[in-house]
Design a protein around this nucleic acid. Structure first.
Length: 290
DNA sequence: GGAATCATGTGAT
DNA sequence: ATCACATGATTCC
């Protein structure tokens, strides 16, 4: 039952990886117009170029230079343009619950009924735990129906993630149980554990509108992106792109429900609940896996 | 081109 | 009712 201790070594060979990486990501994306050199970045961070290169590449599967390319505006626009329509048209036959290759992480999803949603979590027991992840400390929340919440924050801010998430379902009972959540964390962040036979069960707790938006997000394949207005059209409300933005922002299962693949119409990365740097990091990290 | 401005749907108060 | 939004299109310089 001590998977808990195994995970850190599997995911973040050095615990501080994400700290270093996020600073590199920040530096790179703030100055991407100047295409800073590895030496310049290393100098800024007070590290040796080779050490930095190694740390970053191990984390992203991508050299800093390639990453810089991946978070550049032109690249984002390219992600958007590829095969405009079929992208979202496809998997509506899935209905509300049922297995499917929703993106490269196999997921089955079900939604809570509107009645259950109004209860604000009443009668629900949520087990939670904190685990290291490639994007900082992850807060994992599960019910007996599957994964219900996933949040990220920098080390030392665990309390904030928890308050944020718990506030969404204030009537639920919360039990710390990292033994249970550890296996979810491992499944989510280790790409070699993604298997069709044993999909990850998730449960979407939200309003009818929110659930429709989140289901649409699940249809976006890895390495692709859509705009907020694409999503609005897909759910049959073409003028609601702003409402879509708000709903995307309330996505409780960050990363698994790939809200980071929603971009502004220009290809610019707009907002992200857990910090824009993390959104860039996720996009870049995925670029390294595709 | 880029800043300012508006129309807009949803959910929380 | 009113307000804040992870938007997007239009209209001015």
């Amino acid at each position: 039952m001590n998977i808990t201790t195994a995970i850190p070594t599997d995911i973040t060979p050095k615990g501080s990886d994400y700290d270093v990486v996020s600073r590199v990501v920040e530096l790179l994306t703030e100055n991407y117009r100047e295409q800073p050199s590895l030496d310049a970045i290393a100098g800024e961070l007070g590290q040796s170029p080779t050490q930095l290169q190694k740390t970053f590449t191990r984390w992203a599967g991508l050299s800093p230079k390639a990453f810089l390319q991946a978070v550049t505006l032109d690249h984002a626009k390219r992600l958007l343009r590829q095969e405009e329509l079929p992208l979202l048209e496809t998997s509506y036959e899935l209905g509300l619950s049922g297995p499917g290759r929703l993106h490269d992480l196999f997921v089955t999803h079900e939604a809570m009924s509107p009645g259950e949603w109004k209860q604000r979590g009443a009668g629900l027991t949520i087990r939670y735990g904190f685990h290291p992840s490639p994007f900082g400390v992850a807060l994992v929340m599960v019910t007996d129906r599957g994964l219900a919440g996933l949040a990220f924050n920098d080390a030392g801010h665990e309390r904030e993630s928890f308050e944020d998430m718990a506030g969404r379902w204030p009537n639920a009972v919360y039990v710390e149980d990292s033994a249970t959540t550890a296996s979810y964390a491992a499944r989510i962040f280790q790409a070699d554990r993604w298997r069709e036979e044993e999909p990850l069960r998730i449960v979407l707790i939200g309003s009818d509108f929110q659930v429709r938006v989140w289901q649409t997000l699940l249809k976006i394949p890895m390495g692709k992106a859509v705009t907020y207005s694409d999503i609005a059209c897909d759910i049959g409300q073409p003028t609601a792109s702003r409402a879509v933005g708000a709903a995307v922002g309330r996505n409780p299962i960050s990363f698994v429900v790939p809200c980071h693949r929603a971009l502004g119409k220009s290809g610019a990365l707009t907002g992200y609940h857990w910090g824009l740097t993390r959104k860039r990091a996720m996009l870049g990290w995925e670029a390294g896996k595709v």
